[in-house]
C-alpha cells in the first residue's frame, strides 16, 4: 500500500505543473495581469458613472447645495453625512457625486463633439488632400497655437460661466486636436488597396469616408478620446477652480478643490476628497486609453 501510494503522493505534490514551468506560469500571470489592467479601470469607470448618475437618485443623500451653516465642517462619519460636511454645511458625499456628474457630463459631451466634428474635419481634410487639406490644417494650426488652458479661459471668460459654455470652451481645443489625429490616420488608410478598389468601383467620396475610412480610424480615435477624457476632466476642473467653469454653489470637483483650499489648514480633507476623485478618474481613463493602444498594436 505504502509503496504504491508514494508515486501517487508525488503526483499530488506537483499539483499544477504549469506553475513550476516558468514559461507557462508567467504566461498565465501575464494573462491575469492583462485582465486586471483592463478590468480595474473599466470597473472603476462603470462604478463611477453608476454612482454619479444613479446614486443621487436612489441613495438617501442630502441635497448638494443649500446646507445649514450650523452643520459646517462636520467630520467624516457623522450621522447621515458619511464623508462629513463642507464649510457651508453641505454633505460632501452628495457634492462629490453631483460634481462627478457635471465633470463626466462635460467630458463625455466634449469628447463626443470632438470625435464627430473633429474626426469628420480631419478625415475630410486628409482624404481630400490638396488645397482643402491645406486650408483646413492652417486654420486648425491657429487654434493649436494657443496654450489650451489660455484659450479655454479666454473663451469661458467671454461666454460667462455655465455648464454649456464650459462644454463649448473646451471643444475649442478638443476639435483641432482630434482633427489632427483623424487626419494623419486617414492619410495612412487612404493609400490602402481596399480604398483604391472602392474608388475604382465608383463609390462616391462620402461613401468611402463613411464606410471605409471611418471604421478604420475608429480604434485610434477611441484611444485618443480616452486620453481626451482625462484631459477634459482636468481642464474642466481647472476652469471651475478659477471660477470660470461650473458656477458655485453648484458642485464640481474643481470648485470643491477651490473651496477646500480656503480652509485647507483647518479641514484638509475637504481638498483631499475631490482631489482623489479627480485623480482616480483621470488615471482610469488614461489606463483604458493605454489598453486600447496596446490591443491595437497587437501586444
Amino acid at each position: 500500500m505504502a509503496v504504491t501510494e508514494a508515486p501517487a503522493a508525488a503526483v499530488v505534490a506537483v499539483p499544477a505543473p504549469d506553475v513550476l514551468d516558468p514559461e507557462r506560469g508567467s504566461l498565465r500571470w501575464a494573462g491575469i495581469r492583462r485582465r486586471l489592467v483592463l478590468g480595474i479601470p473599466l470597473g472603476f469607470v462603470a462604478l463611477l458613472i453608476l454612482a454619479c448618475f444613479v446614486g443621487p437618485l436612489v441613495l438617501p443623500l442630502h441635497p448638494p447645495v443649500g446646507g445649514d451653516i450650523l452643520n459646517s465642517a462636520l467630520p467624516p462619519g457623522s450621522p447621515s453625512h458619511p464623508l462629513g460636511t463642507d464649510i457651508n454645511g453641505n454633505d460632501v458625499l452628495s457634492r462629490l457625486l453631483h460634481g462627478g456628474q457635471s465633470s463626466l457630463l462635460v467630458a463625455i459631451s466634449v469628447n463626443l463633439i470632438g470625435l464627430v466634428v473633429g474626426g469628420g474635419i480631419g478625415a475630410l481634410s486628409g482624404y481630400a488632400g490638396g488645397w482643402v487639406d491645406n486650408v483646413i490644417m492652417r486654420v486648425l494650426d491657429v487654434f493649436i497655437a494657443f496654450p489650451s488652458l489660455v484659450l479655454t479661459i479666454a473663451i469661458a471668460q467671454a461666454l460667462g460661466p455655465s455648464l454649456p459654455n464650459t462644454i463649448l470652451a473646451l471643444t475649442a481645443f478638443s476639435i483641432p486636436a482630434v482633427a489632427r489625429v483623424a487626419r494623419s490616420a486617414t492619410l495612412r488608410i487612404k493609400t490602402m488597396p481596399f480604398v483604391q478598389a472602392a474608388e475604382l468601383s465608383g463609390s462616391p467620396a462620402w461613401r468611402i469616408l463613411l464606410r471605409h475610412i471611418a471604421p478604420n480610424i475608429t480604434p485610434q480615435m477611441l484611444n485618443f478620446a480616452m486620453l481626451g477624457m482625462g484631459i477634459v476632466i482636468v481642464t474642466e476642473g481647472a476652469l471651475s477652480f478659477l471660477g470660470l467653469g461650473i458656477p458655485a454653489p453648484n458642485p464640481s470637483w474643481g470648485n470643491m478643490i477651490y473651496e477646500g483650499q480656503q480652509s485647507m489648514s483647518a479641514t484638509p480633507l475637504l481638498v483631499l476628497w475631490p482631489s482623489l476623485a479627480l485623480l482616480a478618474t483621470v488615471l482610469s481613463f488614461n489606463l483604458l486609453g493605454e489598453n486600447i493602444r496596446d490591443e491595437m498594436s497587437g501586444r
Binding site: 483650499q261 482631489s275 485623480l279
Partner: peptide, 11 residues
C-alpha cells in the same frame, strides 16, 4: 501623469 498640477499644488 493623472495628477492635475493644481491638485499637486494643493498637496
Amino acid at each position: 501623469l493623472a495628477v492635475p498640477n493644481y491638485v499637486l499644488a494643493m498637496l
